[in-house]
Computed example of a mutant assay.
Amino acid sequence: MYTASCLCGAIQLKINTDIPKIFVCHCQQCQKAQGSAFVAIAPIHTQDLEILTGQEQLGEYYATENKKRVFCKICASPLFSARLDLPEIVRLRVGIINEPLNAQIASHAFTNYKAAWFEILDDHAKFPEAVC
C-alpha cells in the first residue's frame, strides 16, 4: 500500500496494491504533459486507487479522443492518465507517491522520440515506436 498526493496536497490518494514495475515513455506528448524528458508510470487497477480527499479538484484534459490526463486544478500536478477503452486501468505518475517505491523500470517506450539532451543509460527493454 502507498499514499500519493499532488504538489499542493489538495488531492490525497491511496494505492491498495504493490507496484513492482515502472514504465517510462519518451513520446512527445508525454514530454509536453510532464515538462520533462519522459513520464514514469505504473498501471493501477481503478479498484486499487482511492481518492481520499480532493475529488472536486480533479481536472481532466483529453490529449486524444481516447485518453484523458488527470491533474490537480490548483497546482496542476499530473496524477494519472486513463484510456476510455481500458476503464479498469489508470496510469499513475509514480512521482506523486509519498513513500519510497521499491520498483524496477520494466521498459522504455517511444525511444525514437526521446529528448536529445537525455541519455538512457540502463539496460531495460527499449521500444522505438511502442504505444504509450
Results as ranks from 00 to 15, higher is better:
residue 131 V to F: 11
residue 112 N to V: 10
residue 73 K to I: 08
residue 103 A to K: 04
residue 55 Q to M: 10
residue 100 P to T: 10
residue 84 L to E: 15
residue 122 D to P: 02
residue 104 Q to R: 14
residue 28 Q to A: 01
residue 66 N to S: 04
residue 26 H to M: 09
residue 32 K to S: 12
residue 97 I to G: 01
residue 29 Q to C: 14
residue 3 T to Y: 04
residue 4 A to I: 05
residue 52 L to Q: 11
residue 116 A to T: 10
residue 102 N to R: 02
residue 77 S to A: 12
residue 25 C to A: 04
residue 32 K to N: 11
residue 10 A to W: 02
residue 115 A to E: 09
residue 89 I to R: 03
residue 99 E to K: 11
residue 107 S to N: 01
residue 53 T to P: 00
residue 112 N to M: 14
residue 119 E to D: 12
residue 58 L to I: 15
residue 103 A to G: 04
residue 37 A to Q: 11
residue 73 K to N: 13
residue 7 L to W: 05
residue 6 C to A: 03
residue 118 F to M: 15
residue 81 S to I: 11
residue 123 D to S: 07
residue 72 C to F: 03
residue 109 A to D: 04
residue 110 F to C: 09
residue 86 L to C: 07
residue 47 Q to M: 12
residue 55 Q to C: 09
residue 118 F to R: 13
residue 64 T to H: 08
residue 88 E to P: 11
residue 29 Q to E: 14
residue 45 H to A: 14
residue 53 T to D: 08
residue 76 A to D: 14
residue 40 A to C: 13
residue 49 L to N: 01
residue 89 I to W: 07
residue 110 F to V: 07
residue 132 C to I: 14
residue 108 H to K: 10
residue 108 H to F: 12
residue 127 F to T: 05
residue 113 Y to T: 04
residue 38 F to L: 12
residue 14 K to G: 02
residue 66 N to Y: 05
residue 91 R to M: 13
residue 76 A to I: 15
residue 34 Q to T: 09
residue 44 I to A: 01
residue 114 K to Y: 10
